[in-house]
Amino acid sequence: MTLALPLPHPLLRWWRSVLSGSPTAVRGASSGPPAINELYHARRLRLVRLAVLMVDDLGTAEDIVQDVFAALYRRHGAQLRSVDDPDAYLTAGVMNAARSALRRRRTARAYAPPAAGTAPAADERMLRKEGDTQVLEALGRLTVRQRLVVVLRYWSELSEEEIANALDVSRGTVKSTAHRALTLLRGLLGERQ
C-alpha cells in the first residue's frame, strides 16, 4: 500500500518560489509574501478538516484553527516575512493544539467528583440520644487538634503525657488545647462552668 501525498497548495508553491527567488516569483514580487488573510482564506478549511479528524468536534476544531492563526499573527505579523513555510507552521500548530485539546478532554473525563457525605444508617440515628447528636455536631466545629485532644483524653482516657507523645507536642500544648476545646464545647452546648 502506497501513501499518496497531495500536491502542495498553489499558494504554498508561490510562497516557496518567493523564498527561492525564482522567475515565477518575480511576477508577484510587487505584492510580496502572502498576507495572513490570504493564507487564512486559502488554508482554513483544510486545517479545520484536519482538526475535526483529530478532535471529532467541529466547534472545537474551528476554535483550534482560529487560535493557531491568531498565534501566527501575534508572532509574525500580517505579512509573514519571517516564516519559511507557513503551511507547515500552521499544520504543526493545529496538530499540537488538537493534542492539547484531547489531553484536556481526557483529564476532564477522568475526573471523578468527590462522593457526597455519607449519611449515618437509620438504626444508628435511632440509637443515638438527642444529646449525643448535639455533642457530635459541637465536636465537628472544633479544630482537628482540639478534636484529637478531647477524644484522646475523654474517650480513650489517655493521660496528658500519653496524648503529648501520641501527637508529638508538649504537655503544655495538650493542656492549653484541651482547655480551649472544652471552653468552646461548653459555649456551643450552652453549659456554664
Rank of each mutant, 00 (worst) to 15 (best):
A51C: 05
V169E: 03
A119L: 11
P114T: 00
R46W: 05
E162Q: 15
L80T: 01
R180W: 04
V174H: 08
P86N: 05
V55T: 10
F69G: 06
A110E: 12
R74V: 01
R145P: 01
Y89E: 14
W14L: 15
Y154W: 07
H76V: 07
L11C: 10
T24C: 04
R153A: 15
P6I: 05
A112N: 07
S31E: 07
T183V: 06
H179V: 05
M1K: 08
T173E: 08
G190K: 04
N96K: 14
T24W: 12
A71C: 01
R49W: 06
V174S: 10
G117L: 10
T173C: 10
D132N: 02
L80P: 05
D57Q: 07
A97R: 14
V65P: 11
A181T: 01
T118S: 12
L80S: 08
Q79G: 08
R43P: 00
W15Y: 11
T107N: 07
R46P: 03
V150T: 09
E162N: 11
K175S: 15
I163T: 11
L127I: 04
L158P: 03
R75L: 01
V169C: 11
P113E: 12
N37F: 05
T177V: 08
S159W: 02
V83D: 05
Y73S: 06
N37S: 15
R186C: 11
G172A: 13
